[in-house]
Design a binder for these strands. Structure first.
Length: 720
RNA sequence: GCCGGGGUGGCGGAAUUGGUAGACGCACAGGACUUAAAAUCCUGUGGGAACUUGUUCCCGUGCCGGUUCGAGUCCGGCCCUCGGUACCA
C-alpha cells in the first residue's frame, strides 16, 4: 500500500510496512522473478486541510513539502523502488482520472445523488469527520454538541456488486480473517419482504425479515426515526411526543443506538398496521434501535423470537407471543428470554405443527401468491458516499444548471482543476463554494450559466485504482496503460494494515470489477495475494502525532544503520501481529551482523581464490564438513519457506543459527567449502539487509552487485 | 453493542498437521582474555521439590470446564486486550 504523507517524518510503522515488504521483493528478485516494486503518495485528505485551518499553510504546500522529505527518507531504507513509477494523487494528471472514473460510473447509473446525514458543528459552522466527534458526541475543537444534518451527496453504487464482492473472495489468496470481515460487512441475508397495510393512510410499509416463520408472533412494528413515513402516520395527539423523541436521539451514533446493553427507548406513533398473515392489528412505534440505512428502515417485531424485540417489549410492556417451540419442551406459553432457534410452529394458524424451517418457505410462498410479500436477498453493505464538503480532494465533475439540472462535465473538459486560491477557514459551506471563478461554469448541455459541484471526492476513490496507474504514471491516453496492465495485473503481493479490511480493500475490489466491466482490465480481482503487517505500538498505544508517542527511527539508523534496524523490526515477532516497540533486543541483531562480517573479512576474495563447487558428495566430506554442509542446506530450505510466507522473525533466527555454526566450524573445512557456505549465507542475508549483503558479496570476491546478478541457490536436499 | 484478531519464562518470541513446551535473541549469573574496563568468547538460565550432585518427581502456554492414549494447538463458557464499525487513512 502506498504511503499517506500526513507528516514529514517516517515513523516506525512505515519502516515496518515497507522494509520487510522490500525484503520479500528482493528475495523474489534473487530467485529470478521480474519484480516491479513501486511507491507513491496518497496525498489528498483531511489532515492536510486541518493543518491548514490551524496554521494557514496551504495543503498543497505542506503536502508537497512532506512528500519531498518522505522521499528522501524512503531512499534511506534501501528499498528497490522503481522511482520512475512514483506517483502522487494530488496532481491533475492523476485526479483527472478520478473524475473520468466518476463519469463512467455516472454513465452506467452507478453514481447518483441522495440525501445523507453529516456531522454538523453549529459553532464551527462546518461538517465534521467522525474522527473529529468526541465520544460524548461533541466537537473536538469547541466541545459543542454535534448535530446531524442532511445534505444531498454523491454515492457510488457498490451494492450493485455485492454478490460478486462476496463470491470473489473464494478466488483470492487473502487472510481468512480479512475475507471473513468482508463477508460480514457485506452481510448477505436471505429472507422475505413482507408488506403491512398501514391503517388511516392507505399505504403499505414493507419490512425485511429472515424469519417469516415467526410472522404469527408479530406484536408491534418499529420504524426508524428517520423513516419518511413517520411524519405521515403519527397521530395528532402523538406528534409532540414523537418529535421530542426524534430530537432526543439525534446526537446518538449508530453504534450507541444499536448497542444491546443500552436501555431501549421509543415512542408509539398512534398508528396501526395490519399483519397480512392473520389480519391482526398491531401498533407502530418509533425506536432508535432500528436504523434507516439497513433493510427498509422498518422492522416487524417478534419479541418472542428476537432478542432486541424481547428487550423492547419488556421495557414497554408490549405483548410477547411464543410461536416456535424449543425442541424438547412442551411449554407453549412461557418464555424466559427470546428463543431464536428453529422448532415446531405453534399458534400459527394452519402452519401450526409444522417445522419452522419448512414454514419459512411456505409462508413466503403464500405471501407471494397473495402479493403481500416476496422472497428477497438483503445486504448490510451500503452504497459508498463519496461527497466531502472539503477542499483538499478531487473536484466532482458535475455542474448544476437552472434549465438542465444535474449535468456531468464532458470528458474532454477534464480535469476540473482544484483552484489554489481558496479560503479553508470553515464558514458554513465547502471551501470551494467561495471561489467564484471555480463555481461559475457553462452548462455542457445548453451552454447557459451553471454552478459546479463544490464538494470533493472521498480519498478512498484515489486509492482504489492507483496500483494500475503505477504501471505508467505519465500515461496521458487513459486512466492507465491497458496494454501494460494486461501483463501485470493482478498485483501479485499486496501488503498493508488490517485496518483497511472493510473499506479500502473493498472499494478497490469494487472499482476493479467496474473497470473490468467497461473493458479496461481483464481480471476479476485487483490483488491476488494480500498480507497484513501488524501495528507497532508504544507502551501498548498506537503511535500518533496527537498523542506525541511516535518513536523516531533516526537515532537507531544513526547508531546501527538501516539494515540492522530493518532486520531488528523483522526479528521482533510475527509480521502480521506487530507488537510493542522496545529497543532492548536490537544489539542482538547488531552482534549477529558483526559476527557475519567477521566471517567474511577473515576470508576476503575466497570466491576468487577458492571457487566453490555447486554440490558436494557428503560421503567425501569429513564429519565436520558434513555437518556444515548439511546445516547450510537445511538453512536455505528453512529460510526459503519462512521468507516466502513473510515469517521474517524465524528467517532471521535461521541465519543466526547458521552464523553460530559457521563461527564454530568453518575453520575446519576445506577452503572451497568455506566459499560455498559464505556465498549461500550472503545470498540469504542480502534480501533482509541489502546494503550489508552487497558488502559481503564484494568482500568474498564478487565483481557485480548481487541484486544485478540475481544469484540464488537452491538447497541440496540429497543427503539429510 | 456488533464483526475480526491476540494472550506462552524476567522480556521479544519459537513450536508450519493434536505428539519432547520454551528454537533464536534480550536481560541476568558464573568463567576465560585484560593491570583494569569495554568488546569478544565459553558455560548456565521456566517455577518448585528430592536426594545418591546428575538424575528423578511435581507444576506450568489468560481463567473455568470438556474431547483425546496425548491439548499451547480441538470444543463450550468467560476475562483482558487490540483493530474495524461506513467522513482518519
Amino acid at each position: 500500500m502506498f504511503i499517506y504523507p500526513s507528516g514529514s517524518k517516517l515513523h516506525i510503522g512505515h519502516w515496518y510496512n515497507y522494509g520487510p515488504t522490500d525484503s520479500w521483493a528482493r528475495f523474489k528478485k534473487l530467485q529470478g522473478y521480474n519484480v516491479f516494486e513501486p511507491m507513491g503518495y496518497d496525498a489528498f485528505g483531511l489532515p492536510a486541510e486541518n493543518y491548514a485551518i490551524k496554521t494557514g499553510v496551504h495543503p498543497q504546500d505542506s503536502t508537497l513539502e512532506n512528500i519531498k522529505d518522505i522521499r528522501e527518507q524512503l531512499k534511506q531504507m534501501g528499498c528497490m523502488y522503481d522511482w520512475d513509477a512514483e506517483l502522487m494523487t494530488c496532481v491533475p494528471e492523476y485526479y483527472k482520472w478520478n473524475q473520468w472514473l466518476f463519469l463512467q460510473l455516472y454513465k452506467k447509473g452507478l453514481a447518483y445523488r441522495k440525501n445523507a446525514p453529516v456531522n454538523w458543528c453549529p459553532s464551527c459552522n462546518t461538517v465534521l469527520a467522525n474522527e473529529q466527534v468526541q465520544q460524548d458526541g461533541t466537537c473536538e475543537r469547541c466541545s459543542t454538541e454535534v448535530e446531524r444534518k442532511n445534505l444531498t451527496q454523491w454515492f457510488f453504487k457498490i451494492t450493485e456488486y455485492a454478490d460478486e464482492l462476496l463470491s470473489g473472495l473464494n478466488k483470492i489468496d487473502w487472510p481468512e480473517k480479512t475475507k471473513s470481515m468482508q463477508t460480514n460487512w457485506i452481510g448477505k441475508s436471505t429472507g422475505t419482504e413482507v408488506d403491512f397495510e398501514v391503517e388511516a393512510i392507505d399505504e403499505k410499509v414493507s419490512v425485511f425479515t429472515t424469519r417469516p416463520d415467526t410472522l404469527f408472533g408479530v406484536t408491534y412494528m418499529v420504524l426508524a426515526p428517520e423513516h419518511e413515513l413517520v411524519n405521515k402516520i403519527t397521530s395528532d395527539e402523538r406528534k409532540e411526543e414523537v418529535e421530542k423523541y426524534i430530537k432526543s436521539i439525534q446526537s446518538l451514533s449508530d453504534i450507541e443506538r444499536t448497542s444491546t446493553v443500552k436501555e431501549k427507548t421509543g415512542v408509539p406513533t398512534g398508528a396501526y398496521a395490519v399483519n397480512p398473515i392473520n389480519g391482526e392489528r398491531i401498533p407502530i412505534w418509533v425506536a432508535d434501535y432500528v436504523l434507516a440505512s439497513y433493510g427498509t428502515g422498518c422492522v416487524m417485531a417478534v419479541p418472542g423470537h428476537d432478542e432486541r424485540d424481547f428487550e423492547f417489549a419488556k421495557t414497554f410492556d408490549l405483548p410477547i407471543k411464543k410461536v416456535i417451540l424449543e425442541p424438547g419442551t412442551e411449554e407453549k406459553e412461557k418464555l424466559e428470554s427470546a428463543y431464536t432457534g428453529t422448532g415446531m410452529m405453534i399458534y400459527s394458524g394452519k402452519y401450526t405443527g409444522r417445522n419452522s424451517i419448512d414454514g419459512k418457505k411456505q409462508i413466503t410462498d403464500e405471501l407471494e401468491r397473495e402479493e403481500l410479500g416476496r422472497a428477497k436477498v438483503d445486504y448490510k453493505l451500503r452504497d459508498w458516499l463519496i461527497s466531502r464538503q472539503r477542499y483538499w480532494g478531487t473536484p466532482i465533475p458535475v455542474v448544476y444548471c437552472d434549465n438542465c439540472g444535474e449535468v456531468p462535465v464532458l470528458e474532454d473538459q477534464l480535469p476540473i482543476e482544484l483552484p489554489y486560491d481558496v479560503e479553508f477557514k470553515p464558514d458554513g459551506g465547502s471551501p470551494l463554494a467561495k471561489n467564484e471563478e471555480f463555481v461559475n461554469a457553462k452548462c455542457p448541455k445548453c451552454g447557459g450559466a451553471a454552478k459546479r459541484d463544490v464538494d470533493t471526492m472521498d480519498t478512498f476513490v484515489d486509492s482504489s485504482w492507483y496500483y494500475l496507474r503505477f504501471l505508467n504514471p505519465k500515461f496521458t491516453d487513459g486512466m492507465f496503460d491497458t496494454e501494460l496492465a494486461k501483463n501485470w495485473e493482478p498485483v501479485d503481493m499486496y501488503v498493508g494494515g488490517a485496518e483497511h479490511s472493510t473499506m479500502h480493500l473493498l472499494y478497490a475490489r469494487f472499482v476493479h470489477k467496474f473497470l473490468r466491466d467497461i473493458g479496461l482490465v481483464e481480471t476479476d480481482e485487483p490483488f491476488a495475494k494480500l498480507r497484513h503487517q501488524g501495528t507497532i505500538t508504544n507502551n501498548g498505544a498506537k503511535m500518533s502525532k496527537s498523542k506525541g508517542n511516535v518513536v523516531n527511527p533516526n537515532s537507531f539508523i544513526e547508531e546501527y544503520g538501516s539494515d540492522v534496524f530493518r532486520m531488528y523490526l523483522m526479528f521482533m515477532g510475527p509480521y502480521d501481529l506487530g507488537g510493542d516497540w522496545s529497543d532492548k533486543g536490537i544489539v542482538g541483531v547488531d552482534r549477529f551482523v558483526q559476527k557475519v562480517y567477521q566471517l567474511m573479512t577473515e576470508r576476503e576474495n575466497f570466491a576468487k581464490d577458492h571457487p566453490s563447487k555447486e554440490k558436494y558428495d557428503v560421503t567425501e566430506l569429513n564429519e565436520l564438513e558434513k555437518s556444515v554442509y548439511q546445516k547450510v542446506n537445511q538453512s536455505i530450505n528453512k529460510y526459503t519457506e519462512e521468507v516466502e510466507h513473510l515469517r521474517f522473525n524465524t528467517a532471521v533466527a535461521v541465519l543466526m543459527e547458521l552464523s553460530n555454526e559457521l563461527s564454530k566450524s568453518l575453520k575446519g573445512c576445506s577452503e572451497d567449502l568455506q566459499t560455498y557456505a559464505l556465498e549461500r549465507m550472503t545470498v540469504m542475508i542480502a534480501p533482509l539487509a541489502p546494503h550489508f549483503g552487497e558488502e559481503c558479496w564484494e568482500l568474498i570476491g564478487n565483481e557485480k552487485l548481487i541484486f544485478d546478478e540475481a544469484v540464488w541457490f537452491e538447497p541440496d536436499r540429497q543427503h539429510w
